[in-house]
Design a protein around this nucleic acid. Structure first.
Lengths: 228, 228
DNA sequence: ACCTTAATAACACACCCGTGTCAGTACGGT
DNA sequence: ACCGTACTGACACGGGTGTGTTATTAAGGT
């Protein structure tokens, strides 16, 4: 018995657990988009993946474990999808337009980004109902996007002289405007999804650019140079 | 038979239906605050009010009818509670401070306003899942608050000369800043409830006042005149 | 070739839900 | 005093859910 156990221990026999869990995650994401995170039930996910509940319970002992994994997998997938788009280098157009295109990558302006936003909202909702002592995970991503906005707003300073621009715009003020922008983006996203007929994608773009134009700059340009 | 029906028709016999429905509404509101709108079940509300499901179904034939009534009652209650606070006349402090106190009446900064915001979110969520052809009801309230912000921002113009201020600040620009403020408030509320440890009431107040100070004015004051 | 064991699937149990039905109760008009 | 009717509460049915148990299957090491 002991000798035999020595041979068999730690040998995954048939299937790749991680791959199976990934399949489950994809099925669960489809359900989240269809019915929300509350629709992620043991039976429902198993049926969506074409399994039985018993098989699913071999990989996730609890509904809680299942949902926790799905939240984690969704967060990772969103990071892989959204971050490259946000961090894509931008050189064309005015600075206002550059920052606007960065921010618009995060807004639910078309079906693809609406899906991403719905998944993101599900993750945030999960974290709100299951606060963990290690702090919020999504808030770290929020801060990453926050830093992205900071970097973009630094580019908002006079482009000719990037060396001493920090004197005109101290870090504190840039941080403040990044925080304002961050909050404004959350509000825009909230309005777009909550009042679909009232705030359209075009309206959101106009509001966003209007706010960006109001960011104080050392060099006041002509009247409407960055308009279109 | 016909003669008797003539005497009995339209005579409510024992209880006041409206009052009973109001009792139900209060019980349902307690459940919404505890478990969300999805927790408003026929059985749950009846138990919360101390009734049986059969009695409840005498007043609401469906769960849908129950929830629709609860949403309507909640909307009315919120209007009665929040609007007077928002529309309270403000004369003291700088204009930035006046507008800030107006906006802060709508933010979930303490337990009372957190409750109101939770109820409001439940109503918005209901309207998102049950769009009605008559347009959004809550959007009308949003627009009322929007107009309140417009009026407040008009006061943001030079106080000495309210007559010709409309020339310096045309209506379009005031409308734009009111919309920006409206969106910003939504984002602030969203951040406060979604990331409780990260955006405190004080942070929200600072961000709000920073944005308000950035509203362009014809008369640039001294460096930090309205700071405290 | 056999046998252990992971993997799977089916079922059972208890709970909660919406909804329908129906018998009992109490009030108000006659 | 009586009777109809609004009101009330209890139960039943069908469906869904989480979770635990158990039998069946198949693969891999010996």
């Amino acid at each position: 018995m002991l000798a035999r156990a020595y041979y068999h221990v730690d040998v995954p026999r048939l299937v790749d657990h991680d791959q199976r869990r990934a399949e489950l995650g994809e099925a669960a994401i489809r359900i989240i988009l269809r019915e929300g995170l509350a629709g992620v039930t043991v039976r429902g996910v198993a049926a969506e993946a074409g399994w039985s509940t018993g098989s699913l319970r071999h990989y996730f002992s609890n509904q809680h474990a299942l949902q926790a994994y799905v939240v984690q997998a969704t967060t990772d997938a969103l990071r892989r999808r959204v971050l490259p788009r946000v961090q894509r280098p931008r050189t064309e157009g005015s600075v206002v337009e550059q920052v606007a295109t960065i921010v618009e990558e995060m807004l639910p302006l078309d079906d693809e980004r609406r899906e991403e936003y719905a998944l993101w909202s599900a993750v945030v909702e999960w974290e709100r109902h299951h606060p963990q002592e290690g702090g919020s995970v999504t808030w770290n991503d929020q801060r990453a996007l926050h830093r992205q906005c900071v970097a973009a707003l630094r580019g908002h300073e006079p482009v000719r002289d990037p060396g001493q621009a920090t004197a005109a715009h101290p870090d504190a003020e840039v941080e403040l405007w990044a925080a304002l922008l961050h909050t404004f983006v959350d509000g825009l996203a909230s309005q777009i999804v909550n009042t679909p007929g009232q705030v359209s994608a075009g309206t959101a773009g106009h509001l966003l650019r209007a706010l960006l134009r109001a960011v104080p700059r050392p060099d006041p340009p002509a009247h409407h140079p960055q308009n279109r």
